[in-house]
């Protein structure tokens, strides 16, 4: 397991960490991506979510 994959796993699932119960992904356009590259993007997202550094696209609410 590479460094980024290990870091993402610990942040997502370790006791006392985020406690995520499900993560799923939509890969990008490159055919040559690695697990480490995917994990690096996941780690960036986790950092920004934790820091509140994101813009809300929309909060989905029930349609009338």
């Amino acid at each position: 397991m590479g460094n980024q994959v290990q870091l993402a796993s610990k942040r997502l699932f370790d006791a006392g960490a985020l406690g995520v119960k499900n993560i799923k992904l939509f890969p990008g356009s490159s055919r040559d991506i690695s697990a480490e590259q995917l994990a690096r993007e996941i780690n960036k997202v986790l950092s920004e979510l934790s820091a509140g550094d994101f813009e809300t696209n929309e909060e989905v609410s029930a349609c009338a």
């Binding site: 990008g28 979510l49 809300t56 609410s61």
Partner: peptide, 30 residues
């Protein structure tokens, strides 16, 4: 409810992701 957010993901690598948390987890509280 689902929170939809935008992020500067590298779209060569990742276009999107879904995350949900265990109840009472730090993710859920966050």
């Amino acid at each position: 409810h689902v929170k939809i957010v935008k992020h500067g993901l590298d779209t060569n690598v990742l276009r999107g992701l879904f995350l949900s948390g265990q109840s009472a987890s730090r993710f859920v509280k966050q």
